[in-house]
Amino acid sequence: MEFGLSQDQLMLGDSVRKFLASEVPLDTVRQLAAGESDDSSVWQGLADMGLAGLIIPEAHGGAELGMLDAVAIAEALGYAACPGPFLSTAIMSAYLLNAAGATDPLTRMASGEYRVGIAFSDVIGSRKGQVTEADSKLTGQSLFALDATADAYLIGLSDGRVFMIEASELTRSSLSTIDVTQSVCELSFDQSPACHVSSSSELVWQTIHRGRAIQAADTLGAAQYMLDQAVAYSLDRKQFNRVIGSFQAVKHMCAEMASQLEPCRAFAWYAGHAFDESTDEAALTACHAKAHMAEVGQFIAKTSTEVHGGMGFTDLVGLHYWFKRIGFNRQLLGSPEAVRHEAAELEGLC
């Protein structure tokens, strides 16, 4: 019996953390926020480490690793508020395309040169009418597609079918959100030629649930960063001739964050493991992990900011980038309320 990350997984997480600490400092995120750069060089760096092809089969140039490995990496990415399309290209699109047997783009995806975004708003919750298909041509709009600079997109239709469409065949406008580290866009189709990928509603949902497990791990990492920062700041900042971390009010805020966050580590690991073992409860676990982590993340985002006092509210310490990353993960691919409703449905409670 062994519940935890293997030596290989620990080393993988460590090497990603080291890379991010030296290559993706907060300045990178600030440049992104100022519109002075995009996430392409960061993504190429991660791809060179093998992250873009993490779950892609070796035959297509990937590392053919599993979801628990991906969880370990997502945690490290969240900890660094690292930009790039890990969730959309490396996990969701790579999984769906491979499972559907549409393996042509996989080699270029693994090398980092080709990015495939995810446009599943019709599956998760449509707001602007639905995308329609006729003769392999799509018409309509898709909101909050993941990755505003992808080379192509997977479009999920409300009936569960999935089409792939090149970015050049559609109209795309980038959408500003609170989070600059994860880009989203609005796609418009007008008789846009698309390639049929899958007709399996089950496959779309498997893809979404995998994305949710990754989001949970990403929020775990981001929340851990915010807790670490809060503790460090409280041991540095002095008021009334004492470090504020010696005040019980502050200590208890940190203890509450730690006691909510620590069990999430085991939860995120299990969520990844459940997919690797294809257990029956994998989808349910992913829903619960995503919703629970969203709540814990929200609490920590708020509390850590408060521990930082006025500085937490400023741009100077940059803590808000993590606050916003956690907020972004909370809504994308289903809000906690929506995901808990799905969990109840999966359990047959409604």
Binding site: F3, P263, R265, A266, T285, H288
Partner: peptide
Amino acid sequence: LAMQYNDM
């Protein structure tokens, strides 16, 4: 669930 996995 979080506490059960923590326990494991």
